[in-house]
Computed example of a mutant assay.
Amino acid sequence: MYVCICNGVTERQIREAAANGCRTVAELTMRTGCGATCGTCLDTAIAVLDSVHGEREPLFPIVSLSHAA
């Protein structure tokens, strides 16, 4: 299935990029062009990356109150 129509990037290509070490959307865009034009494919591209690598780490670690002081 095509994920990025603008640049002709398929789900298979995203999965191959992920298998070859691609872990971020920025890296995926650099490798495949996915999301570089209009960006409407990014939600689907992220879902495909997540399905290969599992859920993403939170951007900001959650600190419990006992560790905050």
Rank of each mutant, 00 (worst) to 15 (best):
R12S: 12
V9L: 04
R56P: 02
L59T: 12
V52I: 11
T40N: 11
T29S: 15
C34Q: 04
R31G: 05
F60K: 03
V48H: 06
G21K: 03
G54Y: 06
G33M: 03
C6S: 14
I14E: 09
T24Q: 02
A47W: 04
R23Q: 11
S66T: 01
V25S: 09
R15A: 03
D50R: 13
T29A: 15
V52S: 07
I62W: 08
C41T: 08
H67E: 08
T24S: 15
E16Y: 02
V9C: 04
A18T: 09
E27F: 09
A17H: 06
T37C: 14
E16V: 13
T40C: 14
N20Q: 13
A47V: 02
A36W: 07
H67M: 02
C38R: 10
G33N: 11
A47H: 03
E11C: 06
R31S: 05
V9S: 04
S66Y: 00
I62D: 13
I62M: 06
A36E: 12
V3Q: 06
I5W: 04
S64M: 05
G21Q: 05
A26P: 02
A17W: 01
V3G: 02
C34S: 10
D50E: 15
F60Y: 10
A17R: 09
V25P: 04
I5A: 03
L28V: 12
G39R: 04
T10G: 04
V9D: 08
M30A: 15
V63E: 11
T44Q: 09
C34N: 05
E11A: 10
D50L: 14
L42W: 04
A26C: 06
S64N: 05
T37D: 11
C38Q: 11
M30Y: 12
V48R: 13
M30E: 15
R23S: 09
E16H: 03
A17E: 10
A36V: 08
T29I: 10
E57G: 03
D50C: 13
E11L: 06
S51V: 06
C4G: 03
A17I: 08
T32Q: 08
Q13L: 08
T40I: 06
E16K: 13
A18W: 11
T40W: 06
L49F: 12
C38V: 11
R31Y: 04
I14T: 08
C4W: 00
R31I: 15
R23T: 15
Q13W: 07
I62N: 12
S64T: 09
R31C: 13
R15L: 07
V25K: 06
C22F: 01
P61Y: 02
G8P: 02
E16T: 13
E57T: 11
H53T: 13
C6D: 14
S51N: 15
A47M: 08
C41W: 00
V63L: 12
G35N: 14
T29Q: 15
P61Q: 07
I5N: 00
V9A: 00
T37Y: 05
C41R: 01
E16C: 00
G54R: 06
C4A: 07
C34D: 00
R31E: 02
G33H: 07
T44G: 01
S64Y: 03
M30G: 14
R23A: 15
V63Q: 04
V48A: 10
A19C: 12
S66K: 03
A26M: 13
H53P: 09
A26S: 13
L42Q: 10
V25M: 14
